[in-house]
Amino acid sequence: MPDLDQSFAALADPTRRAILARLAEGEATVQDLARPFAISQPAISRHLKVLEDAGLIETRIDGTSRPRRLKPDTMSQLWHWLGQYRALWEAQFQRLDSLLDSLEDPPADPKERKP
């Protein structure tokens, strides 16, 4: 299992999340990635190193080109975790739905906005 601690820490930065969103559309080089962001290629490279150390992306060697791409295993682990977490909440919420259905409606409160 990847180090989720490191993975989530890497996700804490909005630029790195934007880079991941871009890579979700397909692999890209540092030059490709620097273009839409108002930051330098060295800064992009530093973010890419954090993402790679966290196991979120990998580098493909293609001649002189070094495109980055998402590392599917780690991303699917994170996705799996979020899905599991969401399912657990939903189980709770469905019990809450049932309880709410069984409660009497409160008396009308004139302060509350009516739909």
Binding site: W89, F93, L96, L99, L103, D105, P106, E112
Partner: peptide, 20 residues
């Protein structure tokens, strides 16, 4: 960097959800 956010709709008014 620090937040986990959950959102969900319930088909009952806030006063009732608050009680629950």
């Amino acid at each position: 960097a620090t937040d986990v956010v959950i959102r969900r709709r319930f088909s009952h008014p806030p006063a009732k959800v608050w009680r629950a």
